[in-house]
Simulated scan of single mutants.
Amino acid sequence: MEQKLAEYRARKAREAKISEVRESTKKFFSGLWKSRERANPVEEALLPPEDAPEEASSVCSDDDTVNCCSYVDLFYYLLWFVLWVIVYVVFIEFQFGTVFLVVSGLIFMYVNTRTGPRRSGEVSAYSVFNKNCESIDGTLKAEQFEREIRYGPAVVK
């Protein structure tokens, strides 16, 4: 009876460990894809407060440490970079290194720009695409520039 109980406990511990590994793997990969789907943090900061997610509603925090990504993310990017370098060396051997560099640069630019539609309530950096041509905060408009030239920077709101 003791042996069966020990086998049962070992099997349950093994199943718990396997489910823990599965959950952590799911969490890792779902977080990986979610981080790819998220908008640029600057764009998230430009969202109106009522449409902004809770974590993006405050651009500045009291915490002085900046944690942009975890070690797993850094390792992931390092692996992609190493793969890119290996393929680049192969293309250099075939004397297509420059072509690979230009094409990979274009692909890098495309992948790192958001090509999907804007979320509802999100303002565009280009004022002509916003409702009533409203510009975002920090935009230097011709009217503001003219007021600063004529009356000095102290009169600008």
Score class of each variant (00 low, 15 high):
Leu101Cys: 06
Phe75Ile: 02
Phe94Tyr: 14
Phe96Cys: 10
Val111Thr: 15
Val87Arg: 05
Tyr126Asn: 12
Arg118Asp: 12
Phe108Trp: 15
Arg114Trp: 10
Val102Tyr: 11
Arg114Gly: 01
Glu122Cys: 09
Ser127Tyr: 11
Thr115Leu: 06
Phe96Leu: 09
Leu101Ser: 15
Cys133Leu: 15
Cys68Lys: 08
Val72Gln: 09
Phe96Lys: 11
Asp73Lys: 00
Cys68Pro: 06
Tyr110Thr: 14
Cys69Glu: 01
Ser70Gly: 05
Asn132Ala: 06
Asn67Asp: 10
Val103Asp: 14
Ser120Thr: 04
Phe94Asp: 03
Ser70Thr: 12
Ser70Ala: 02
Asn132Gly: 05
Phe94Ala: 04
Thr98Met: 04
Pro117Asn: 05
Ser135Asp: 15
Val82Met: 06
Val111Ala: 06
Leu101Gly: 14
Trp80Lys: 00
Gly121His: 12
Cys68Ala: 13
Glu134Asn: 11
Val99Leu: 15
Leu83Pro: 08
Ile86Asn: 00
Ser120Met: 08
Glu93His: 01
Glu134Met: 10
Phe75Lys: 05
Trp80Asn: 06
Ile136Ser: 04
Ser70Trp: 00
Val99Lys: 02
Asp73Met: 04
Phe75Ala: 03
Phe94Cys: 02
Asn132Glu: 12
Thr98Glu: 07
Ala125Ser: 02
Phe81Thr: 07
Ile136Trp: 06
Tyr76Asn: 05
Val72Ala: 04
Val128Phe: 08
Phe94Arg: 14
Leu101Arg: 10
Gln95Ala: 06
Thr115Arg: 06
Gln95Ser: 15
Met109Asn: 05
Arg118Gln: 05
Leu79Asn: 12
Val90Leu: 01
Tyr110Met: 04
Phe100Cys: 15
Leu79Gln: 11
Ser135Arg: 07
Ser124Gln: 01
Asn130His: 13
Arg118Leu: 05
Leu83Gln: 07
Gly121Leu: 08
Trp84His: 03
Tyr110Trp: 07
Asn130Phe: 08
Tyr76Val: 01
Tyr126Asp: 09
Cys69Ile: 07
Val102Ala: 14
Cys68Ile: 05
Phe94Ile: 09
Gly97Tyr: 00
Ser135Ile: 03
Arg119Lys: 10
Ser120Asp: 10
Ile86Gln: 03
Leu101Phe: 06
Ser120Gly: 11
Ser127Cys: 12
Ile86Phe: 10
Gln95Met: 06
Gly121Glu: 12
Tyr126Leu: 08
Glu134Gln: 12
Val103Ala: 13
Asn132Trp: 12
Ile136Val: 09
Cys69Asp: 01
Asn130Ser: 15
Ser127Arg: 15
Leu106Ile: 15
Gly116His: 11
Tyr76Thr: 07
Ile136Thr: 10
Ile92Ala: 09
